[in-house]
């Protein structure tokens, strides 16, 4: 059967990694807009400036779910500076590409991760 997406996208859609909430997260980042059909929240547990745990909740199409799942794998264990270097393109490349129409709307995972890190740093400077 022909698929709209790459095999990797479908794998992550079918068996997403690290989905769910982290109740005592050190930071969260939410991007997207449910009205447009994609909304994503990333939860981070951080120790010594390193991401020790990461989870996501996503409302959206298969591409949105797969990019969320992929970013959690890419970011886990990375320092915050390293994680900030992960781009939208990296996520899409790791998934063997996304259909052009999905590159913008559903490829929000890197943004959500960066948002979470920004929120974490903001919180820390306030303390």
């Amino acid at each position: 059967m022909a698929d709209l997406y790459s095999k990797k996208v479908m794998d992550h859609f079918r068996n997403p990694k690290n989905h769910g909430e982290i109740k005592d997260a050190d930071a969260t980042g939410t991007v997207g807009n449910a009205v447009c059909g994609d909304l994503m929240t990333i939860y981070l547990k951080i120790k010594n400036d390193t991401i020790i745990d990461i989870k996501f909740l996503t409302f959206g199409c298969a591409a949105a779910i797969a990019t969320s799942s992929m970013i959690t794998e890419l970011a886990k264990g990375k320092t915050l500076d390293e994680a900030l270097k992960i781009t939208r393109k990296d996520v899409a490349d790791e998934l063997d590409g996304l259909p052009p129409i999905k590159m913008h709307c559903s490829n929000l995972a890197a943004d959500a991760l960066h948002e979470a890190i920004k929120n974490y740093r903001k919180k820390k400077t306030k303390k």
């Binding site: 859609f13 959206g60 298969a62 129409i101």
Partner: peptide
């Protein structure tokens, strides 16, 4: 939930359906 995910989930189970809306690719 979002329609396209639902349609692709159904497709995995062998059921061909349509999104009521949106992301119809």
């Amino acid at each position: 939930i979002e329609g396209e995910s639902l349609v692709l989930g159904l497709n995995d189970k062998g059921v061909a359906a349509a999104t009521g809306s949106a992301c119809s690719s």
